[in-house]
């Protein structure tokens, strides 16, 4: 179970993700999409899920029983090769429905700086997910 005290809290992501042109090309190739300078809209989820795994597991979530319920992206600036990024996680809500845990969680993607002070405050992508932890 997610610890109730983390609801509403933003967990700062310290991991820096470096986006490569090759990883964008591999993603585009997998879905047969013409490769372009900017990443496909859902590409951001590849780093978001890594950030979520670390922040949500440490908040008590049973990651192994998780399924993805819904997903929303707001793309202020699309990702590109060479971007160095970090992802903050905010656990917005937790509901228990029919024995399942519904976790509403937001990711905010920022450009990473060399330290906390120089990290940009400008959000590139904001994404909302509902993750369902199946009871059992």
């Amino acid at each position: 179970m997610i610890k109730p005290e983390v609801i509403g809290r933003t967990l700062r992501g310290e991991q820096v993700f470096t986006i490569t042109k090759d990883s964008i090309a591999a993603f585009s190739n997998a879905i047969g999409q013409l490769n372009s300078e900017v990443a496909p809209p859902t590409y951001a989820f590849t780093i978001i899920i890594t950030a979520f795994e670390s922040s949500l597991k440490s908040s008590g979530m049973n990651w192994d029983r998780m399924v993805h319920g819904d997903q929303k992206f707001e793309i202020i600036q699309p990702l590109q090769g060479g971007d160095r990024l970090r992802v903050d996680t905010t656990i917005e809500n937790l509901r228990l429905v029919a024995g399942n845990e519904l976790v509403s969680v937001r990711a905010d993607i920022y450009r990473a700086g060399d330290n906390e002070e120089s990290s940009s405050q400008e959000v590139l992508i904001r994404a909302w997910s509902t993750l369902v932890v199946r009871g059992g």
Partner: peptide, 20 residues
Amino acid sequence: GRYLSELADGPGSIKEFSSR
């Protein structure tokens, strides 16, 4: 996302995208 990118002018045209 590919469907939307091909309807519009590439992936940079997509500002929001959501689904269940």
